[in-house]
């Protein structure tokens, strides 16, 4: 019974991984591709990890599957967010059918808040370490 369920989960999970791959080839701009890669890929991985958990014979094996599951679930959306941000700031071409809210234009040019911890000298033309205004990049 458990094995049948696990096998079914493995099949469905690999189907979703296949959908993610086809989506990346078939859709036509960065953002749509990220929809396919993030959602379908994450669900495929989740289903396969659940199948592994069902088939695990010791607690250690179960914990390993849980770890893989947790790491990927936590990191996939953040990665997608960062890729989307970089693509949007760099004017990546979009699907011509895309419409945008008028309020979305200011997002192209993020306001770099002045970093008060640095000395303001002419030699330092641009602060070279991390930018101060991204609240959640991992």
């Amino acid at each position: 019974m458990t094995e049948t369920l696990a096998n079914a989960l493995l099949l469905v999970g690999s189907f979703f991984c296949l959908v993610a791959g086809i989506g990346v080839v078939r859709l036509n701009d960065v953002f749509s591709r990220m929809h396919a890669a993030t959602k379908a890929g994450t669900l495929g991985l989740a289903l396969i990890c659940i199948a592994i958990m069902l088939l695990a014979d010791t607690w250690l094996h179960l914990a390993e599957a849980v770890f893989v599951f947790l790491f990927m679930i936590a990191s996939a959306p953040v990665g997608a967010h960062l890729i989307g941000r970089a693509a949007f700031h760099n004017y990546q071409p979009m699907d011509p059918k895309t419409q945008a809210d008028p309020e979305s234009e200011p997002f192209r040019h993020p306001v770099r808040l002045p970093d008060s911890s640095l000395p303001t000298s002419e030699l330092v033309a641009e602060p070279s370490h991390k930018s101060p205004d991204d609240p959640d990049n991992g």
Binding site: S14, A37, I83, A86
Partner: peptide, 30 residues
């Protein structure tokens, strides 16, 4: 970029399934 993200995710999936097939524990750590 998107493809790189997806490829790494699919590689993890592949390793997990390959651990199941081969039974070598080390693949799971990888």
């Amino acid at each position: 970029m998107v493809a790189l993200d997806l490829v790494s995710m699919l590689l993890v999936v592949f390793l997990v399934v390959f651990k199941l097939v081969s039974g070598v524990d080390a693949y799971m750590y990888v």
